[in-house]
């Protein structure tokens, strides 16, 4: 059993910026635990020496030349924005700072 807890599911929801009602939290805890339990077949394997595959093919060094291409028209870009002001995307206040 994965032993997935309600607290962990709530933490994950916060990381993913989702709000879950109490009922959703209960339901997701059960459903996610079932999916993780199904993955137990995989977890029990000893794959210590196996290399991870993140890419289906082994291409390397795919690069492009440093040459300017046209950008989008600002009016088009901002027309899609839920809120815009002064040529910018407008958002409610930002509480912390990253980077």
């Amino acid at each position: 059993m994965s032993g997935l807890t309600r607290t962990e599911v709530a933490h994950v929801a916060r990381l993913a910026r989702l709000r879950l009602s109490d009922e959703e939290l209960d339901l997701f805890t059960v459903q996610l635990a079932r999916i993780l339990d199904h993955a137990a077949d995989m977890q029990s394997l000893d794959l210590a020496g196996v290399v991870a595959t993140a890419h289906p093919y082994d291409l390397i060094n795919v690069v492009r030349e440093d040459v300017v291409r046209p950008s989008l028209d600002r009016d088009v870009v901002l027309a899609a924005a839920p809120d815009a002001e002064d040529g910018c995307f407008a958002v409610p206040r930002i509480m912390g700072e990253e980077l």
Binding site: M42, Q43, L47, V50, A52, T53
Partner: peptide, 13 residues
Amino acid sequence: YYGQALKVRTQMR
């Protein structure tokens, strides 16, 4: 989970 799944992916290939 994720790390193990990538190794299974290698085995699949």
